[in-house]
Design a protein around this nucleic acid. Sequence first.
DNA 1: TGCGTGACCACGG
DNA 2: CCCGTGGCCACGC
Length: 111
Amino acid sequence: MKDQKNFFQDVYDVVRLIPKGKISTYGSIAKYLGMARGARMVGWAMNQAFALPDVPAHRVVNRKGELTGRHHFSNPDLMQQLLEEEGVVIKNHAVADFDHYYWNPQEALDL
DNA sequence: TGCGTGACCACGG
DNA sequence: CCCGTGGCCACGC
């Protein structure tokens, strides 16, 4: 059991583990941390995380694969740009072939 | 102290 | 997939 105060740190820790060229979702991360209904909190954590250089917030999208957080970057197009640099194809502000790039912490970290 | 808001999600139609 | 509804937790005023 971990303190909820470390929840944000846990979020950053998981996000940091997302492999290059892969993406994950707010809900999956929240679920992995035991907050199945705390997807919004992951979003809030990301809002604070964009200040942390080691946290690839651009690899976190919503369950539809849309780059909903792009407006919170210094440049709205930066998120898409970073993903494309990693080989992720973006179409209309959303990840094309979402299932192909999807990275599930539950499976990857083998709970 | 209470209410509105939000980088969300699940469910039913 | 779209739409409406409810729930979730934290933050700002």
